[in-house]
Amino acid sequence: MSKKRARLTKPTAQHRDPRLEEVMTGTTVFNVPFPADLSTLKGMSPLVIRFPYSVEYLHSYGQDSPFFAGLANRKLLGTRCGPCQYTYATPRLHCPACGRETDWTELPQEGRVHTFTTCYYGSEEFLKETPFHLILVEFDGVDTLLLARLIGVAGPEEIRIEMKVKAKFRRNSQLKTTDVYFVPA
C-alpha cells in the first residue's frame, strides 16, 4: 500500500519522459537506411520479418472417441447401419444414406490394399518420416475404406493393389489414428 502511494506521489523517470522499454528479442534492428527524398520510397525493397506462430488445442474426438479407445485396446472399430446393411470402415455415427444412427462394430484385422503410394516428401510435420507408405485398406464385408500407413516394405515396387495386409497396434497409444498401422500379411 505504501509502495502504491509512493508511486502516485513521486513521479518516476517514466512519467517525465515516457518511453517503451527496449527489447532485444525477435527482430532487432539498429539501422534502416532511409532516403532524404520521399519520392524515392516507392522503389524501396520490401521489408520481410520472420516470426513463429504456435497454438495448443484441446481437441475432442466427440462421438468418434470410441474408435480411438478401441485402438488403445487393439481393436479396430467401424460403424454399421443396420437398415442400409452398410458398414463404414472409417466410423461415422450417422449414416449419410438414411440419416439414422449407426452402431459400433469390430472390423476384421486383415484386409487388402485398395490403393497405395510412397511419399518421398510430405507436409512439414511428416517430412522427417519420409519416405513413408500410405494405403487405403479394404476389408471383406465392409463397404468403405480406411487410410493407414504400411510398414515393412522397402518401396512402391513392393506394394501391390489387392495384396493382403494385417493390422498392428502401437503398444503405447497416442490416441491418434496412427495407433493402428498395417504390415504385409
Binding site: Y61, D64, T90, H114, T115, F116, T117, C119, Y121, G122, S123, E125, F126, E129, F132, L134, I135, L136, L147, A148, R149, I161, K176, T177, T178
Partner: peptide, 24 residues
C-alpha cells in the same frame, strides 16, 4: 484432421493413391 491428416497428410500423396487406382 481426425482420420486422414495424422496418417501423413499430404495432398500429393492423396492424388498419387487416386491415380494408382485409376491405373489399376
Amino acid at each position: 484432421v481426425n482420420f486422414d491428416y495424422p496418417v501423413g497428410g499430404f495432398y500429393s500423396g492423396y492424388y498419387a493413391m487416386m491415380v494408382n487406382r485409376h491405373i489399376h
